[in-house]
Every structure is written in C-alpha cells, then in structure tokens.
Write a protein that binds this DNA or RNA. Structure first.
Length: 409
RNA sequence: CGGGGUGUAGGUCACCGGUAGACCGCCGCGUUUGGGACGCGGAUGUAGUGAGUUCAAUUCUCGCCACCCCGACCA
C-alpha cells in the first residue's frame, strides 16, 4: 500500500471527548471513525487489524473443531419471547418495522442457533457440535465508553457447543479455555482467567481479563502466584491456590465462557436420542471474544507517547517503508524496488511515498505503530535502515536480512 | 438511569449583547527536505436545535438533541 493513497490522513490532535488511550490513538491514526456514541466505522487500517485478530481466532477455533457460519443480526421477536428475554434482556435493541413487525437486533445468538440446530440434532451421533461466527453485535449499553472497549455495536466471535452430557461439555469447556489462552498470547495480550461473579447461567463461567490501569473491571490478583479471581466472588479472602495476598487490579474483559447447561435446550426443546434409546436434553456452552475490544485492549497495553506499538501478529502491515529524498531518482527507484520485493515475499508493506517532510513521516510511522520501520534515503546508500517500533536503536540491514527477520515471526 | 461538563471552520480551541477569529489541516506559488519546515496568497462557518428576553443574541434564560466524564449497570 502506498501511503499517498491510504484513507484517511492522521490527525495531530485527538477529537475532544476521546480520553482513553485506545480511543485517542485509534482515531488519530485513522483506524476508526466514531459515528455516534459507541458506534464506529472501522477504517482500512483498523479493519486490517480486526482481520488479523479474526484470523487468529478462526485458526484456534477451527483447531478445536469449531465450524464457522454466519447468522443473521436481525432476529425474530418470537424467539426472544420464547426464552423470556424479550422482556428481561435489558440491553436488547428492539425495533419495529413500518408494517408493525417486531425484531431484535442480535446481542447474542442463542435465539437463532437453538432453533437452527434443533432441526439437525436428533441422535447422539450428531454430537458434539461446535459452531461459531464473527459478527457485529448490538447491545444498548446504558453508557458506551472508552472508545472501542465498550460499544453499542461491536465485532464479536461467539461460539456455541452442544454435547450429550455435562461431562462432555465440561471437557470441551476446558479445551476452549486453553484455545482462548493461545489466542490472547498470539495477539500479545497478557490475560488472567477469573471466575465470573454475576453470571446469569452458572457459577462456572470464566472471564479472561487483560490487566491494565485503564480497565473498567476489577480483579483480585495474587501477589504471590498471580492467580486471579473476580472481586465480587472472592472479596477480602486469601488466594484460593496458594493462600497469598490478593491485590486489586483494573482489567479489561476480553473473553468469557459460559456453560449454558440445558436451559435453552428446554426453551427450544433441543433433545437427542441417546444410545439407550431415551430422549435427553442437549447440554451446551457458549464462548465469546470481543474482537473489536481486543483491538482496543492491545492498544491500551502497547503504546508510548508517540503512538501505538502493534504486536507483529495483529499489525496492519509488517513493514513501513519511509522514503526520504524521493526526488532523487536513484533513491526513489530503490525504494520502489524494495517495496515490490518485500511484497513478492508475501510481506505486507506500507510505503510512505508522500511529498512531505521527513519529520512528518516519522511522526506518522510512530503513531501508526507498524513493527518494522525501514528508512530509504540518500544516506542509507545500498543498505536499509531498520528500526523496530518497540525499540530505540536503528540497525543497517540488507534486504535479505530484513526479509528473514520479518518472515521469522 | 442519577450527577457533572461540553457543543463556534474538516480537527483543536479563543472571543464577544452590535451576525466571528487563531492554530492545525486544505488549495496555489516559491524556498525547503533525517523528527510533525518557512514565506506569500487563497478557500471553508446558516455559531447543535427550538423558543424566550432585547432596538439588537453566537453571546443572556429555558426546553430539546448530541457528545464526554463519574457513578449505577454490564450476556
């Protein structure tokens, strides 16, 4: 991608109202654009990041047998009435068409997936089944805040698993938990697991929390063994694992998993015929990761006074070529050549070919936070001046060396 | 939903009871060119919205709307 063509431009100042780090930097860098409170357009750079996160999530969900599908965001009222949640789900967006029909805008998808699978699950041979989607969710939050961390429309991965028994479901539940830890590790987010306190369905639900001073949740973390528990659940007691002292930490909830047990199966009459010929209720679990929230959390965790520091795994591009002295034909040709050769290796490259000052280019490179900055100018001669966004020092490298470093991750 | 705050150019903000300015950005010309360059010239506003007070309202008052912060809430 040539920077001169990239939409849109960066901003020197964050819009008033943007206070949290992720909100400021994502807007200034041109990753997101706010349409209204809690609702954002994901601009080209931001969408690239979300796609990277989504791909990691897909790989790990597929690895544990999840099958991806896409359900409608527009959900029929009758299904919500059936589960009682048309009344009780307080952040549900309800809408009425001009002709009087009523719908829910999906905040979660039990009301769709249960009626769906009830048509196909008849036998124990049809189980287990694990389905997931990545989709925009709608929740009428009383207070949207903190940029992309708490929106009214946001991108989420939700997986639903169906099992012959609670035991089988519990085993899968552990498997998903492990997959979640892999996902957060890959996206560069340090997380702790906590037992959720206020879960509607079960005291077995778990949350995955990123510790950061800008979080809106509070978890208790053991100063000794670093085990974590939810505050409401374990107030003022010692660490359940080692007896150590618990300390309050702010955190962002980036994922959660809930055993649904058989509650929705009853509402939608989801039963199967077991080996013994008897009809039994399907035991289920649901598992969420806020994809757009992960993007915000990554920024909260990784930035400095100049801008974002993306982990290589989710960065919008891997290499940011800063071309200086481009009015010199030899330099320009070299920059173009490096740009093409890197791309030929499958490396994602942003090439700053704009006719602006060097300082402005460096400032934007720091703001946007692409992992490897490569300066090509009269000074660099036949070498490439490489600097990692996360480090201070620059190093001169050959193209071959740069390709090796970039591809090694 | 309670409390507080803010709405003026594309962005950040100032000013003022007599219908608007700065900086950034944008356009043109020239000079620059390794950390957000400089000079000159130029374009861009129904001052969130409705009402009230007033000879006169962007300015004062009230309603509404929007956005932000604190809290409550948080499948």
């Amino acid at each position: 991608m040539k920077y001169s063509k990239l939409f849109p431009k960066t901003l020197k100042q964050a819009p008033s109202g943007a206070e949290s780090i992720n909100h400021q930097l994502l807007i200034r860098g041109g990753f997101i654009h706010q349409e209204m409170a809690g609702v954002y357009t994901y601009l080209p750079l931001g969408w690239r990041v979300l796609s990277k996160i989504s791909d990691i999530v897909r790989e790990e969900m597929n690895a544990i047998g999840g099958q991806e599908l896409l359900m409608p965001a527009l959900e029929p009222k009758e299904n919500w009435v059936k589960t009682g949640r048309w009344q009780s789900f307080d952040v549900l967006f309800q809408l009425k068409s001009r002709h009087g029909a009523e719908y829910a805008l999906g905040p979660t998808h039990e009301e769709i997936i249960y009626p769906l699978v009830v048509e196909y699950i008849h036998s124990y041979k049809d189980l287990p089944l694990s389905l997931y989607q990545i989709q925009n969710k709608f929740r009428d939050e009383p207070r949207a805040k903190s940029g992309v961390l708490r929106g009214r429309e946001f991108l989420m991965k939700d997986l639903y698993s169906f099992h012959v028994s609670d035991e089988d479901r519990n085993n899968y539940y552990e498997e998903v938990g492990k997959a979640y830890l892999k996902i957060f590790k890959r996206t560069g987010l340090p997380v702790v697991e906590t037992k959720a306190g206020g879960g509607t369905f079960s005291d077995l639900s778990k949350e995955f929390q990123t510790l950061t001073s800008n979080g809106e949740d509070i978890v208790m973390v053991c100063t000794n063994c670093h085990a974590a528990v939810n505050r409401e659940l374990e107030q003022n007691i010692a660490c359940p694992l080692c007896g150590g002292k618990l300390e309050e930490k702010k955190a962002i909830e980036v994922g959660n998993i809930f055993p649904l047990k058989t509650s929705f199966a009853e509402a939608f009459n989801l039963k199967f015929t077991d080996k013994d010929g008897k009809q039994k209720l399907v035991s289920a679990g649901c598992y969420g990761i806020g994809i757009s929230r992960v993007m915000g959390a990554v920024v909260e965790v990784g930035s400095d006074e100049r801008g974002i520091i993306w982990p290589e795994s989710v960065a919008p591009f891997q290499v940011h070529i800063v071309g200086l002295d481009l009015d010199d034909k030899a330099v320009k040709d070299k920059a173009e050549e490096v740009y093409k050769l890197l791309q030929a290796e499958g490396i994602e490259v942003l090439f700053d070919d704009r006719e602006i000052s060097a300082g402005a280019k460096f400032a934007d490179a720091d703001l946007i936070g692409i992992p490897y900055r490569v300066v090509i100018s009269k000074k660099t001669e036949d070498k490439l001046e490489v600097k990692k966004r996360s480090e201070k020092e620059t190093e001169f490298k050959t193209l071959k060396e740069l390709i090796e470093i970039t591809l090694s991750h």
